[in-house]
Design a protein around this nucleic acid. Sequence first.
DNA 1: GCAGTTGTTGTACGACTGTCCAACAAGCTT
DNA 2: AAGCTTGTTGGACAGTCGTACAACAACTGC
Lengths: 214, 214
Amino acid sequence: MSNATPLRPPAFRRSEPDARRADLIAATARVLAREGTGGTSVRAIAVEAGVSPGLVGHYFAGIDALVAATYAHVEHTVSEALDAAVAVAGPNPRARLDAFVTASFSPPIASGELLATWTAFWSLVRSRPDIARQHDEQYAAFRARLEALLAECGLPAARLRHAAIAITALVDGLWLELCLSPVGLSPEAFSADEAGAIARSVLDALISTGRSAG
Amino acid sequence: MSNATPLRPPAFRRSEPDARRADLIAATARVLAREGTGGTSVRAIAVEAGVSPGLVGHYFAGIDALVAATYAHVEHTVSEALDAAVAVAGPNPRARLDAFVTASFSPPIASGELLATWTAFWSLVRSRPDIARQHDEQYAAFRARLEALLAECGLPAARLRHAAIAITALVDGLWLELCLSPVGLSPEAFSADEAGAIARSVLDALISTGRSAG
DNA sequence: GCAGTTGTTGTACGACTGTCCAACAAGCTT
DNA sequence: AAGCTTGTTGGACAGTCGTACAACAACTGC
């Protein structure tokens, strides 16, 4: 007998709070992508993360808070992808703007898998003031970046706000429809390339109008 | 003793199937508006409609089918409101287009109460092929009407498709943000009037570009 | 090696979900 | 007035939901 108490592997591993939080958020994003809003529950997330269901409650006040944190994380990923696309576009202002909208309709941003995260979050905005505030902040940040890019292109300051709202809405609307109707499934659907071309042509129209008339 | 069997009012009233269907759909719309997506259940809808919960299953295959029917009905209402706005705008093509976008941001279309119906529907699109088809059809109809209005304005046929996609996305994006951030609650939020002005200025840019360049 | 800390487990709990169906009754037909 | 059709009821059903909590165990510091 070499060992009276057979040494078995640990039943679980401890994690640093931040790492575990990140794990749970990533698991939530995967479940939302795979199962959709309706199939996303505390238990499904716990299984996906390989932890006990009780742990979710230990790190997040509730399922709503977890969804909100997941939205914040996904939006952060999107922001980084957009910044990276703008950075590689070089110094030309218009090229940077084009890179911004093109990236908005390319993976990993334009992916039907992200849609459930957005709809789940939107469902909470109207009933939860704290989540409404989170939405406002993230929307404001998104619009501010677009305003900066438009300012670089020489758009007069007086038109910046409306132009940024317009392009944000245009990109959001195209992105939403792109996620809802992936090309190939429906005969009328437009492709990511088309969405980019459309957004760029609206940018053309807005910027040239601004220059000739303002 | 006037009556051995006291005559009591009927315990319930029968309805024509179509009328009852319409009642249930209207009740679903109200519950979605009041309680949000999360609070919308078969029982809540039955209470709102003043019927027994079992009746819901008698008329609709499931809660998903009822949500889809509610979406179809609300979108029909929206379409009629848009048509009415265009009709009263008179014969001038550009005035008709302006009326279209202005109405898109006015009651009863731009109302936060409608948002839950849309998010609930969007949540079903990716997992239910039949609902995806319904979305494609209603989106195509929406875009077709916009194409007709743009054609009246003299936009060349080659640019009609992209212009209609652009304006549809722009209006959708503005509408969504308008519902998510009612002006007054957030300092940066834009108003319905602003949304209309923004959409009309993009129309200006698109149409004038089309005329001068092609 | 032995506490002490605390991340983690697993389950119990009550409330709620969607679906189903046998019994009932409203209103039309005869 | 009696019968029939069928819209309607109301509860049963199995399942899932989110949350709470006592017990357990992995790791830290001693």
